[in-house]
Design a protein around this nucleic acid. Structure first.
Lengths: 203, 203
DNA sequence: GAAAGAATCTTTACAGTGATAAGTTTGGTG
DNA sequence: CACCAAACTTATCACTGTAAAGATTCTTTC
C-alpha cells in the first residue's frame, strides 16, 4: 500500500536526520555558495521531503547557523593545532596564516560564518558560543605572544586588531575584491600584509 | 481605452527609469537589508511593473551591482574629503576613521559592497572600476603618509594592510560578530584597534 | 503632419524558494 | 496488542528572479 514517494528509503525513520542534513549541507555548501544553499536541495540530497527538515531545524537560518557554528569550532581547532609548539615570536604570524588558510580552503563556509545571515537575529546560541570560543582561542594566542594576562585590555585590543586584519584580508580575497598575484603563495601574501602594517608603524 | 494598470502614471514613459529605480533601491536598502532587496519591491515603489526593470538592468545582480558601485564612489569621496588638510602623521588614523564611520552609517550598503553577491561574476565593469578607484584613493593617502611613490611595493603592502584592518573591523562590527561597548565612540573603538596593532609590533 | 520603427512598459507565466497546515506512517512503550 | 508521540509526506501559500509576447508611446523619416 506504499503509494508514498518513489524514493528508495530502506529506513523510513532515520533517527539522526539532523546530522545527515547537516553533513549533506556542508557537502553542498562549497559547490553552491553560501546564499544559494536551499533547504529543499539539501533535503533532496538526503532523500527526504523538504518539510522533514523543519522538524529538526526551526528554519533555514537555524540549519545554516549550525553549519556556521561548526565552522567556528573547526577554525578554533585549526588555530590551536597550528599554535602548538610555535615559538612565542612566531605566534601571531602562524595564527594569521592558519586563519587565512582556513578561509581560503573553505570560502563558502567562511562567507557563511561572517555573512549577513545572522547579523540581525540573535538566536542560535550554538553559533554564538562557538564564535566566542574561537575568539577566545585567538585571545589566548595573543596573550601568550604578549606575555600578558588574557583579560588585559591590551590583549583584548591586540586580539581585536589581529583578528580584524586577518579577517579583512581573507574577506577581501575571498570576495574577489583583492586578487593576490598568482605566483605568490598564501603565506607570502599574509606576510606582505603584515609587513605592510609594520611599515605603517615604523615612521 | 486605458484598460491597463490602475497605477497612477501621469507620465507613461519616464525616460529615466533607471535612475529612479536606483534611488528607490538605495532608499529601501538600509531598511530591508542587502540580501532581501527584491526587484519587485523596488519596481513597486517606483510604481512600475517589475519586468520594466529588466529593460534597464540585465538582472538583479546588475541593479544591485550599480548600487554597490555608487557606494564605492561615495566611499572614495568621503575618504578624499576627510583627508584634505589632515597632517601627514594623522592620515592613516583619519582615513581609518572615515572608512569605519562610512561603514557604520551605511551598514546594508557596505554589506552589499563587500558581500558574496559579486564574488563569482566578473561582470558589472562599473563596479570593478569604482572599486579600483576607491582603493586608489587609499593608496594615495598611504603614499602621502609614507612619503613614497604610490606605485611602490611598500605602499601597496601598507595600503593592503590598512584596508584589511579597517575593513575587517567594520565587517566584524556590522555583522555583530564583535560588539563595541556601548559607552565607547566609533572614534575610540578604531583607535583601540590601531593601538592594539601597535602593541603587537612593539615587542 | 502621417507612417514606420525603436524604445519602453505591461500582462502572463514558470520554476524555485522558505514556510505552514493537516494528514500518514512508524517505532516505542504501557 | 493498542495506543501515542515522533518522524515524515503531501498539499499549499506567498514570494522571488526571469523570460516571452503583446501593448503603448516616443522618435525619426519622408
Amino acid at each position: 500500500m506504499k503509494k508514498a514517494s518513489e524514493r528508495k528509503r530502506n529506513t523510513y525513520h532515520v533517527g539522526n536526520l539532523r546530522v545527515l542534513l547537516l553533513s549533506a549541507a556542508r557537502e553542498m555548501l562549497e559547490e553552491v555558495g553560501p546564499t544559494k544553499l536551499s533547504v529543499r536541495a539539501v533535503s533532496d540530497k538526503v532523500g527526504v521531503s523538504c518539510t522533514a527538515a523543519y522538524h529538526h531545524f526551526a528554519n533555514r537560518t537555524e540549519l545554516v547557523g549550525c553549519l556556521a557554528a561548526k565552522g567556528f569550532d573547526e577554525l578554533a581547532t585549526v588555530l590551536a593545532e597550528q599554535d602548538r609548539g610555535t615559538p612565542k615570536e612566531e605566534k601571531i604570524r602562524t595564527a594569521s596564516l592558519a586563519y587565512f588558510s582556513f578561509a581560503r580552503k573553505n570560502p563558502a563556509l567562511y562567507q557563511l560564518m561572517f555573512g549577513p545571515e545572522f547579523s540581525d537575529s540573535e538566536m542560535i546560541s550554538e553559533l554564538q558560543s562557538s564564535r566566542r570560543e574561537a575568539f577566545g582561542e585567538l585571545k589566548r594566542i595573543v596573550a601568550e605572544y604578549l606575555d600578558k594576562d588574557a583579560q588585559t585590555a591590551e590583549v583584548r585590543g591586540a586580539a581585536l586588531a589581529g583578528w580584524s586584519h586577518t579577517h579583512g584580508l581573507a574577506s577581501l580575497v575571498i570576495h574577489n575584491v583583492v586578487r593576490p598575484p598568482a605566483e605568490i603563495t598564501d603565506e607570502r601574501f599574509v606576510d606582505m600584509s603584515l609587513e605592510g602594517f609594520r611599515s605603517i608603524f615604523a615612521g
